[in-house]
Lab assay of single mutants.
Amino acid sequence: EEERTFTNEEEARKAKKEAEKRGLRVTVTKDGTTWRVRIG
């Protein structure tokens, strides 16, 4: 499991799409101005 943080919503969405392409489970949460993308 890996967690990545982004300040840019577009980049967070891109990371989510890429992980889904690899067949991984992805959770995206917004924490104030930060987007957290949890993969795995």
Rank of each mutant, 00 (worst) to 15 (best):
E9V: 07
V26E: 00
E10S: 10
R36D: 02
I39K: 01
R36C: 12
R25A: 09
G23V: 02
L24S: 03
G32S: 03
N8P: 00
E11L: 05
T29A: 06
E20S: 03
E1M: 14
L24R: 05
A15L: 11
E3K: 03
R25S: 11
R4Y: 15
K21R: 12
E20N: 04
K14A: 14
T27K: 06
F6R: 00
K16T: 10
T29N: 04
G32Y: 02
G23R: 02
K17I: 14
T34K: 09
K21V: 08
K16N: 01
E1S: 10
I39P: 03
N8R: 05
F6H: 01
V28W: 04
T5M: 11
K16E: 13
R13G: 06
K14N: 12
N8G: 04
R38T: 14
K21S: 13
T33W: 06
V37C: 06
V37E: 02
G23K: 02
E10G: 09
A15R: 03
V28A: 01
K30W: 15
E1P: 11
T33N: 14
V28N: 00
A12C: 07
A12Q: 01
E9N: 03
G40S: 14
I39N: 01
E11P: 01
E10Q: 10
E18Y: 06
E10A: 12
T29P: 00
T33K: 10
K30D: 05
G23S: 03
T33M: 11
V37P: 02
T7M: 10
R25E: 08
D31A: 05
N8M: 04
D31Q: 08
T29D: 05
E18K: 04
A15V: 08
T5L: 12
E10V: 09
E11I: 02
L24M: 08
T27N: 05
K21E: 13
K30L: 11
I39D: 01
K16D: 00
T7A: 10
T5E: 08
R25Q: 11
E3L: 10
A19T: 02
E3P: 04
T33F: 11
E1H: 11
V37L: 12
R25L: 11
T27L: 06
T7Q: 10
T33I: 10
K16W: 14
N8E: 06
K14P: 01
A15K: 03
